[in-house]
């Protein structure tokens, strides 16, 4: 027996439920889409390029160029689109296809494009 089993904590009546909760938490985290296989930031960013330019570099003004955009700016826009807090023609639909951590990865990609 390791020292952990002898600690006062392990003898607590809460120990078993806690262990169970921890196991569930680990399992849930493993099963949620955010933890499922995730495309790379670049792969996700490439799906934006048809409107926002290759690697987010865009010479036109109708759509927002994403290359070099600050991470916070990108994340806030995508999260607001996804939550329906910001009106859009179709970005709400698109944002719905990405998890928080995927939006993070895309934000890092676009911020890194010079």
């Amino acid at each position: 027996m390791g020292p952990l089993m002898k600690s006062p904590f392990t003898r607590s009546p809460l120990f078993k439920p806690l262990l169970l909760a921890a196991a569930i938490a680990v399992l849930t985290a493993w099963l949620t889409p955010a933890q499922a296989a995730q495309p790379t930031g670049a792969a996700m960013a490439h799906t934006c390029a048809g409107c926002h330019g290759t690697q987010g570099k865009l010479g036109r003004v109708e759509f927002v160029p994403l290359a070099g955009m600050a991470e916070t700016e990108f994340k806030r826009a995508m999260l607001d689109f996804r939550a329906g807090k910001r009106a859009s023609t179709l970005m709400g639909h698109v944002a719905n296809g990405f998890s928080d951590s995927e939006i993070d990865a895309m934000a890092r990609y676009f911020a890194s494009v010079k």
Binding site: G50, C51, H52, G53, T54, L58, R60, E62, F63, T89
Partner: peptide
């Protein structure tokens, strides 16, 4: 946007 897309898409 459809008109703009014709151009941005062709460029990509």
């Amino acid at each position: 946007y459809q008109q703009a897309w014709l151009k941005t898409f062709t460029e990509d």
